[in-house]
Design a protein around this nucleic acid. Structure first.
Length: 365
DNA sequence: AATGCGGGGTC
DNA sequence: GACCCAGCATT
């Protein structure tokens, strides 16, 4: 096979050029696991600080298994894709309950844990235990499509079906599967980049299809993503004496398990104070100020308004009026889903970036 | 097979 | 803006 011939080049290149990262040079499966979950759809530089925080907060699997979900989400706050944090803890509990508290050494058992798919299972199996499973992430897909000249869109299962066995065949013949995977990923990240790949220094150049045919800019084939959906979202920061009202978002869904001021989705043209709130709170309410913020996610464009109001009634206002939806997350409740807290307690609760923005910039608007 | 799920860096 | 990052779960 063509690839087999240039593997020595690849390993030599990696030995001379790889970055030093906190989760390399360890074989602790727990540490490697945490790093791999953090790095899913997340750049190394963004994940780095979260990795350190997470390990410090939960040094062992047991610490993670026994923690409050809220504490896990709090460490994850701001990183996004919060189901990763919840699955991490679920998996830790499974390991403690069903696997004797020891991270499993078998590929199939690793793969069975929540939050771990084929890529992550292969990465952990090879990095922690030296097992020959080809780890195929976005970096590997990119160089593979160029090297082998595969024009199937890399997001399609058919692409992995085509390339996976080729890489698997090679890794089963190398004496260092862990180094092969590290080098493969690092190559895609540092050399075979999306734009302007550094073919002049690439250890695979001599056998690369795209280099030979000058098709580096045609490969890989990428399916264009759908446009983000507009979302007109209103938040109600209601102050009563020294307290504010927060709610926990339901699972599943965006920001599941995180806290926020109660929010309400309205048709995109409605930018005024929500009528449903006015109807219930109208008489005893002063609107102090409004914060407007456009918040961009990969799949949503959120036009958010945060209404800071003072409630003048003696008793707390009642948000649970029969037949009226006063905020989106007003279902699936337990005792901690709706809370009145003093504003300086908010740091104890995990919140999303948009909520954090409203809290941080509250004095100056 | 397609979609939902965050946030941020780069060009 | 558009792209995409050491993907996975769900439908």
């Amino acid at each position: 096979m063509v690839l087999q011939r240039v593997i020595p080049n690849l390993l030599t290149w990696y030995g001379q050029n790889h970055r030093s990262l906190p989760w390399r040079d360890t074989q602790n499966p727990y540490h490697i696991w945490i790093s791999e979950i953090i790095l899913q759809q997340t750049r190394v530089e963004q994940g780095r600080i979260y990795y350190q925080k997470f390990i410090d907060e939960f040094p062992e699997i047991l610490d993670l298994a026994q923690a409050d979900e809220q504490a896990v989400l709090k460490v994850w706050q701001g990183l996004g894709y919060y189901s990763r944090a919840r699955n991490l803890q679920k998996a830790a509990q499974t390991i403690v309950r069903e696997m004797g508290g020891v991270f499993p050494h078998e590929y199939d058992r690793i793969l069975s844990l929540p939050g771990i798919g084929e890529y992550t299972a292969a990465a952990i199996a090879s990095f922690a235990f030296g097992m020959p499973f080809a780890a195929i992430d976005g970096n590997v897909k990119r160089w593979s499509s160029r090297f082998f000249g595969v024009d199937i869109p890399i997001s399609k299962p058919a692409f992995s079906k085509m390339v996976g066995p080729l890489l698997q065949e090679v890794i089963e013949q190398t004496s260092h599967p862990d180094l092969f995977n590290q080098a493969s990923i690092e190559l895609g990240s540092q050399v075979c980049t999306v734009s302007q790949p550094k073919c002049e220094v690439c250890p695979l150049q001599a056998s690369c299809y795209a280099f030979d045919k000058k098709l580096q800019n045609q490969l890989p084939v990428v399916v264009k993503k759908s446009q983000p959906q507009d979302w007109n979202l209103h938040f109600l920061a209601v102050h009563h004496h020294n307290e504010v009202f927060i709610v926990r978002r339901p699972k599943p869904g965006i920001w599941a398990g995180l806290y926020e001021f109660p929010s309400l989705t309205l048709p995109s043209h409605e930018k005024g104070f929500p009528a449903a709130w006015k109807q219930v709170l109208g008489g005893n309410l002063d609107i102090l100020h409004i914060q407007r913020q456009v918040h961009l996610l990969s799949h949503k464009r959120i036009e958010a308004s945060c209404w800071n109001v003072r409630w003048n009634g003696e008793e707390k206002p009642n948000f649970r009026v029969a037949g009226t939806l006063l905020f989106d997350a007003s279902n699936a409740l337990d005792e901690n889903s709706e809370l009145w807290i003093s504003l300086n307690e908010i740091d104890r609760y995990p919140v999303h970036r948009l909520m954090q923005h409203f809290l941080t910039n509250n004095q100056h608007d």
